[in-house]
């Protein structure tokens, strides 16, 4: 399990206990964290679950695969530290990770 904190664009924080193997998108949608829609349910097809991951956590999560890379390259509001939260699974290594969300995504 990992404790993950999601920070809305206006600074409001939501901390969730995410079970190992569950994606950060699923956990956020189930807990109704605003700002993460996850339209496609994790098929890496929509880029509506983008989060910004601080650099110190980059080596603790799997690298982007091609699909995620290209979706992000063209997503609105994307930055160098953007990830699709449907592609990040909870694991003990990311316990305590804090991610933030863009102003809007659809």
């Amino acid at each position: 399990m990992a404790k993950i904190t999601y920070i809305e664009h206006d600074g409001k924080e939501h901390t969730l206990d995410v079970a190992d193997g569950m994606t950060l998108m699923e956990a956020a949608v189930k807990a109704s964290v605003p700002g993460i829609d996850g339209d496609c349910g994790g098929a890496c097809a929509c880029a509506t679950c983008m989060v910004f991951v601080p650099e110190e956590w980059w080596d603790k999560i799997p690298a982007k695969e091609d699909m995620e890379e290209t979706m992000l390259e063209f997503a609105e509001n994307a930055e160098a530290n953007s990830r699709l939260s449907c592609q990040i699974k909870a694991a003990p290594a990311i316990d305590g990770m804090r991610v933030s969300m863009p102003k809007s995504q659809h």
């Binding site: 880029a47 699909m67 290209t70 979706m71 390259e73 063209f74 997503a75 609105e76």
Partner: peptide, 10 residues
């Protein structure tokens, strides 16, 4: 073709 799709939405 994710790039074409993302670009097309815009």
């Amino acid at each position: 073709r994710a790039p074409e799709f993302m670009m097309a939405k815009m």
